[in-house]
């Protein structure tokens, strides 16, 4: 392509670039497997583990893609993703343990004094 068309850019891949692509494909396969586990997963914990793994693999994929495209500022976004993954995971686990977000019983049932 004559202009900076990064989406399907093809020209000039070296040895490292093929390595990055192989790495991303492996990560994508893992993501697919995690997604399948999350869909099938009979228990809550299968799903939680699958989701956590999926988030981690997304972070890895973004890092690899950032090296592939030479845009190292994407790694900041990957950091944000890992934070979000952690927060979401804590929220899901807390909810699945308690069924609510841990307010006092009075607040939860909306009881007034």
């Amino acid at each position: 392509m004559e202009y900076g068309f990064t989406l399907f850019g093809s020209a000039g891949y070296g040895f490292m670039q093929y390595g990055y692509i192989a790495c991303s494909l492996a990560i994508l396969v893992t993501m697919t497997l995690a997604l399948i586990r999350a869909m099938l997963g009979p228990t809550v914990f299968d799903r939680v583990l699958a989701l956590n793994m999926f988030g981690t693999k997304t972070v890895l994929l973004i890092c690899v893609v950032s090296f592939l495209t030479g845009r190292q500022d994407f790694i900041d976004v990957a950091l944000l993703y890992s934070l979000m993954n952690f927060i979401g995971m804590v929220a899901l686990l807390r909810f699945s343990q308690l069924g609510y977000f841990g307010e006092s019983e009075n607040e939860r049932t909306g009881a007034t004094s």
Binding site: S24, L28, T32
Partner: peptide
């Protein structure tokens, strides 16, 4: 790059 893009879109549809 298309090798990465297509699986991501497929996973999106699947989800």
């Amino acid at each position: 790059m298309i090798l990465i893009v297509i699986p991501i879109l497929a996973l999106l549809a699947l989800t």
